[in-house]
């Protein structure tokens, strides 16, 4: 009886590992920087390239708290409804990208530098691997 249980446990383990392997072998290779955010809820619909936000570059200069508490960025890619009107008004990116703390918004392509068709995502995130592989796809379909 015990042996059967052990066999069953081993079988379940193999099944889980197998499914895991299948899930993860089919994802496109992650090559961009861990934590890079692509924002494409509005950009491509408005005729601009998607925005790529490099987390690594910003966290070297500002603690997480500065943007995620003071500026009100939610911990969710695509969950902040950032648009250029708000940025020019000094909200979100515009709190720093105003020519005083960081370079101003006229440098469109510095942010709008994403490959066309890249959907909103945290590059290399767990959820992305498990739920979908959104690197190539239609713009703006991701949550």
């Amino acid at each position: 009886m015990k042996r059967h249980l052990r066999l069953a446990a081993v079988f379940v383990l193999y099944a889980v590992v197998g499914v895991w392997g299948l899930l993860f072998s089919s994802i496109p290779e992650a090559r961009a920087e861990y934590g890079d955010i692509v924002m494409n809820n509005y950009a491509e619909k408005s005729g601009m390239r998607p925005v790529v936000f490099p987390h690594w570059f910003h966290r070297m200069r500002f603690a997480c708290k500065v943007c995620h508490a003071d500026l009100g960025f939610k911990f969710k890619a695509g969950g902040n409804e950032v648009n250029m009107a708000k940025i020019i008004d000094g909200e979100f990116c515009g709190a720093c990208h105003n020519g005083e703390i960081a370079w101003p918004v006229e440098n469109c392509n510095m942010c709008h530098s994403g490959k066309p068709g890249t959907v909103t995502q945290v590059h290399g995130a767990n959820g992305q691997k498990i739920i979908a592989a959104p690197v190539q796809g239609t713009a703006g379909t991701a949550k």
């Binding site: 290779e29 992650a30 090559r31 692509v38 709008h112 530098s113 994403g114 490959k115």
Partner: peptide, 24 residues
């Protein structure tokens, strides 16, 4: 797999845009 690639080669930046060469 290669890591820490420059923007123009990382797969999510558009390599044809001028800023791909300007970003650090």
């Amino acid at each position: 797999s290669p890591t820490n690639l420059p923007p123009a080669e990382d797969g999510i930046h558009d390599p044809t845009v001028d800023s791909a060469q300007m970003l650090q």
